[in-house]
Design a protein around this nucleic acid. Sequence first.
RNA 1: GUCCCCGUCGUCUAGAGGCCCAGGACGCUGGCCUUUCAAGCCGGUAACACGGGUUCGAAUCCCGUCGGGGACACCA
Length: 479
Amino acid sequence: MPSAPRVRFAPSPTGYLHIGGARTALMNFLQARRHGGTFILRMEDTDRVRSTTESVQAILDGLNWLGIDWDEGPGKEGPHAPYFQTQRLDTYKKHADQLIAEGKAYRCYCTRADLDAQREATEKSGGFFKYPGTCRELKAPPPGRREDEAVIRFKMPSGDGTASFVDKALGAISKPYSDLDDWVMLRADGIPLYNFGCVIDDHLMDITLVARGQEHVNSTFPQLMLYQALGWTPPEFAHLPLILGPDREKLSKRKHPEADVMLHKRTGIMPEALNNFVIRLGWSHGNDEVITRDQMFEWFDFADVGTTSGVWNPEKLLWLNQQWMKLLPETTVAERLVPFLEAKGFSVQGDSRLVPLVRALRERARTLEEMATTASLYFRKGVTLDEKAAAKHLSGDSLGLLRKVRDGIAALPEWTVEALDGVVKSVSESSAVGMGKVAQPVRVAITGNTTSPGIGETLLLAGRDEALSRIDAALTRGG
RNA sequence: GUCCCCGUCGUCUAGAGGCCCAGGACGCUGGCCUUUCAAGCCGGUAACACGGGUUCGAAUCCCGUCGGGGACACCA
């Protein structure tokens, strides 16, 4: 490979950023960074009915959230602008005209209705439809038809050759010409189809390596034919394994909600974790699991990409997310937690308990959303006691112990985890009972339940006033 | 249906002929730690799809079978 690769991600803006697309983008981005190359973002917005500007924005937002930065593309006009295919129409026309002039493409006047009928008939009889070349040798429009109504088709080379290429991920792949047909390059309105726009742009943008999902391996063959017809050297290709849903079918927007990158943001997954998870689907570096961005830059190479499709594993994503919550600075996690708490109606901006909260809860939550849910307990006024827990821990001798703890902590000049724990410990010792016997009633009084961080932390998190008031309420209730 | 690609624990994977009666991770599970719950630590569970070759030797190479996925548009 040339020393400075130029790679690209070319999504079609017909919806949100898909998880598979995000991984393709990530890998291309990493490849560029690792080898000092350039990463280009190009919008293949040639599907007139489905492409929307909202989708363009959604894709940009998704990439930004994941920290995947492009060097050339929307908002970063470079030497190969524009980066929207619908703004490059005259370029496509020029090349199409050239191909027609050279006899390598031709105008086709067949109507869609005719073609559809033929296709249906062929398929009904069990075959697979190939364009029969009806208009291949036409010199002029049929009677009553005009040139500007025609689509332009690529003329496949005749004979029994074989198209082949060496894929960086899959190895040698080939397909006989006889399996290919004369495909449409340009619609009558001048808007290109995928195989045409893609090749023209990849070449003009000096792309050296095309890395895309495996669903594109078959379209590589007609594209190769086009490079040949144009006299251009094709780039290298790397076809990445697919990401499958739990049903083992290709992750799709329609059937799999987890295909939406931003859904994960909303459920409290962090970008570090999502990138980490997704890069490990189809690629690995020895036994490494938690991988930082810098390590990705250092290690990633398309040569190490696998060949087998991977199934989406939500459990592992969750595990990775927790690993990342423990790895990232507490303050960073705290900042990210704020919106989730605000969504629950708590204004916590600047609250001094945020960082201690993260410290206590990140070992007990796998997502920011989960952490926020648990954290709500400490921002609310009062608490609802779980009946079973209260019956067990807020009765009899326990209440006496709880009272002693209350008196001890109320007398504390300053609330710190150490001081608070110290009170519980001394009550346990002076009363000659185990720590659990003392801590559990306090825990139930504060959280309403039997599980929480360490008892000192729990008290601190609740805050002096709220903690005392909850204990009083428990004492009152218990008689 | 045709073509293309793929096939190691339930899942993600290591493995590029002997280091593998197959290693790691998630999950599940036993234990330790412990004021609860986690986290952490230690241990367990579980796989080379099948059949033929090639070779002194195959998870690794070849062929076949079976299985899975993908592509077959004036979508990308």
